[in-house]
C-alpha cells in the first residue's frame, strides 16, 4: 500500500512538473482576459533591410507571401494592411510575439522592415491561443500543438491522481461537503451562462 501511494505521488508530481509552465501561462492569461487588460506593445523597436526578387505580376497576397518567405519571416498576413502603388508595396506579418511592417521597393527589391515586438507578457499570454500553426514558422514551433495536446492530457491525469490521493488518504468530511458543493455550484454557473 505504501509503495502504491508513493508511486502515485511520484506520478502526480511528474505530471504536474511536465505541465507546470503551461499552467502558469494559462493562469496569467485567464486573469488578463477576464479583466480585458491590454498587454501588447506596438512601438517600433528596431529595423532591418534585405533585398529580394520581386515579380510585379503577382497579386498582393502572393507578393506578400513571396516576400515573407524570401526574407525568412513568419506570421500571418492581414489583408487589410496591404498598401500598393506603382513603386511600393507595404504589408505586415504578425504573430503572438511581434508584428513586422515591411515596405518593399518594387523596382529595386529592397525591403525595409520595422520590428514591433509585443513584449514578454503578450507572448506569454498568447501561448493560451497558440496552436503551433504560424505560417512559415520553424519546425520547432510547430511541435507546440503536441506539447499543448499532451499538456492538457497530463493536467487531467495529474488532477485525477491528486484527487485520488486526497480521497483515498487525507480527505475530511467537511472538505467533501465544501468542495463538493463548490463543484456543483460551478457546474450550475457554467450551465447558467
Amino acid at each position: 500500500m505504501a509503495l502504491k501511494k508513493s508511486l502515485i505521488i511520484k506520478l502526480h508530481l511528474y505530471c504536474g512538473l511536465f505541465t507546470c509552465f503551461y499552467l502558469l501561462a494559462l493562469g496569467a492569461s485567464s486573469l488578463i482576459l477576464n479583466h480585458g487588460l491590454q498587454v501588447e506593445q506596438n512601438a517600433i523597436k528596431s529595423s532591418w533591410q534585405g533585398t529580394i526578387a520581386v515579380d510585379k505580376n503577382l497579386d498582393d497576397q502572393q507578393l506578400a507571401e513571396s516576400a515573407r518567405e524570401q526574407l525568412g519571416m513568419m506570421g500571418w498576413l492581414p489583408r487589410w494592411k496591404y498598401q500598393r502603388d506603382t513603386d511600393k508595396f507595404q504589408f505586415e506579418t504578425t504573430h503572438l510575439a511581434k508584428t513586422n511592417r515591411v515596405i518593399l521597393d518594387l523596382n529595386s527589391g529592397r525591403a525595409h522592415v520595422d520590428v514591433m515586438p509585443k513584449g514578454f507578457l503578450a507572448t506569454f499570454h498568447g501561448l493560451h491561443f497558440f496552436n503551433g500553426r504560424i505560417p512559415n514558422a520553424p519546425f520547432f514551433l510547430k511541435t507546440w500543438i503536441v506539447y499543448q495536446w499532451l499538456g492538457l492530457l497530463v493536467l487531467l491525469a495529474s488532477l485525477i491522481l491528486g484527487l485520488w490521493l486526497w480521497l483515498r488518504y487525507s480527505h475530511k468530511t467537511w472538505e467533501l461537503y465544501v468542495f463538493g458543493g463548490l463543484f456543483i455550484l460551478s457546474i450550475l454557473i457554467m450551465n447558467w451562462i
Binding site: Y14, L17, F18, T19, C20, F21, Y22, L71, G72, M73, M74, H95, L96, A97, K98, N100, P117, F120, T123, F124, G126, L127, A137, P138, F140, L141, W144, Y147
Partner: peptide
C-alpha cells in the same frame, strides 16, 4: 529531468517567438 525538459522547451519556444524573424 521532466522539469528541466519542460523549462527548456518553454524557454526555447518563447525565445524563438520573440527573437525569430
Amino acid at each position: 529531468i521532466i522539469f528541466s525538459a519542460g523549462l527548456l522547451y518553454f524557454a526555447v519556444t518563447i525565445y524563438m517567438l520573440m527573437h525569430g524573424k
